[in-house]
Simulated scan of single mutants.
Amino acid sequence: MTERRRAGGIPLRAIPPNAVTALALCFGLSGVLFAIKGDWEKALASVVFAGVLDGMDGRIARLLRANSRFGAELDSLSDVTAFGVAPTLIMFLWSLQHAPKFGWTAALALAVCCALRLARFNSRMDADEQPHKSAGFLTGIPAPAGAGLAFVPVYLWLITGNELFRAWYLTMPWLVFIALLMISSVATYSWGSLRLRRSYRLLALAGVGLLVAALITEPWLTLLAISTIYLALIPFSMASYARVRRRRSAQG
C-alpha cells in the first residue's frame, strides 16, 4: 500500500503550492485570450498576477515542507507558458504582427530564450557547485522579470497614449534585448539574498503597503518604475558579484 501511494500520487500537503502554480499558468494563458480580444490592460494584468502567484508557490511549498521534483517540473512548465509563450503572443498581437519581416521571429526569441533559461536552471538543479546561487545571485534575469520587462513598451503606450511606443521597429529590438538578458550569464540580485536589519523591517512593511497601493491606483506607471529600477540595478549586481568572486579567489 505504501509503495503504491509513493508511486501513484503526491502528498496532500503538496497540493496547495502546486495548485497555485497551476493557477499562475491559467492566468498567463488568460492574458492571451484578453490580447486576442484587444483588451491589453487585462492581458498585462493577467501575466503580472501570474508573476505574483509564481513568487508565492515556492514559499508555500517551503512553509508546508512540500518541495518535490514534481513541483519543480510543474513550476518550470508554468513559467515557460505564463512568462514565455503568453508574452510572446501578446507582444506579437499588440505590435510585431505589423512588422514587414521577422516580427514573429523576434517575438519567438522571448519564448525560446525563456525555455532555454529554465532548461539551464533545471539542468543545474542538483549541481553541487553553482557560483551565482551560492553567492546569493541569479544567472540572468528570471522568467517573471523578463515578462514584466518585455511589456515596458506597452506600459509607456498605456501611460502616454503615444502610438510611437507601439511601433514594431522599437518593440522588436527591445524584445530581443530582454530575451538575451534571460539567457545571459549576468549576475542579478536574488530576493533570497536580501537581508533586512531589524530597524528597517517596519519601513519595509510600510514600503510594501505603499507599493501595493501604487499598483492599485497607477499600475502601469508603477510597473514602469519597477522595471526601470530593476534594469538600473543590474550594473550594481554585476559589480557586487565581481567583488564576491575576487574575495573568494583571495581566500582560496
Rank of each mutant, 00 (worst) to 15 (best):
E3M: 12
A72E: 07
P173R: 08
A19K: 12
L53I: 06
M1C: 13
G209Y: 13
T2K: 14
E41G: 10
L44F: 04
G31S: 07
F236T: 10
F151H: 01
F83S: 01
R245T: 02
M56D: 01
S78I: 04
D75C: 05
T81K: 04
A225G: 13
E3K: 14
I216P: 02
T228I: 11
I178E: 05
T2W: 14
T21N: 01
P87V: 09
F49R: 02
V52S: 04
L12F: 11
A150V: 08
P144F: 00
A179P: 03
I183Q: 10
Y189A: 13
G161L: 09
M125S: 15
L211M: 10
F137V: 08
A145L: 09
R65E: 10
F102M: 15
N18D: 02
A82M: 05
Q130C: 04
W94K: 00
L233G: 00
Y230P: 00
V212E: 03
P87Q: 11
V80E: 04
W174L: 01
F27M: 11
A7H: 13
Y200F: 13
L181P: 03
L108R: 04
R247P: 00
W94P: 00
A115F: 08
V112I: 15
T139V: 12
H98C: 05
F92V: 12
A204W: 07
F83I: 05
F165Y: 14
N122M: 14
T81C: 14
A106V: 11
N67R: 12
R13A: 03
V20G: 04
L231H: 00
A106C: 15
A106W: 14
V48W: 12
R243V: 10
V186Q: 15
V244Y: 06
V154L: 14
N122W: 13
F102D: 12
S134D: 15
V32L: 03
D126C: 09
S30M: 04
P219A: 07
L221E: 13
S134Q: 15
N122L: 11
P131R: 09
A127H: 15
D75S: 05
L164Q: 09
A7S: 14
V152C: 05
D39L: 11
G58W: 07
L149Y: 01
L96T: 10
W157C: 05
L210M: 15
L224G: 07
A187F: 10
L202V: 04
D54Q: 08
G8T: 11
A167S: 13
A239I: 06
A115Q: 06
R69L: 05
L223N: 09
T2Q: 11
A82W: 00
E73L: 11
H98T: 12
P235C: 09
P173S: 05
L116V: 06
L108G: 08
L231S: 00
G28V: 04
I226R: 04
L224E: 09
L203N: 12
A7F: 13
A109M: 14
A143C: 06
V152T: 13
A72W: 02
A35P: 08
A35N: 01
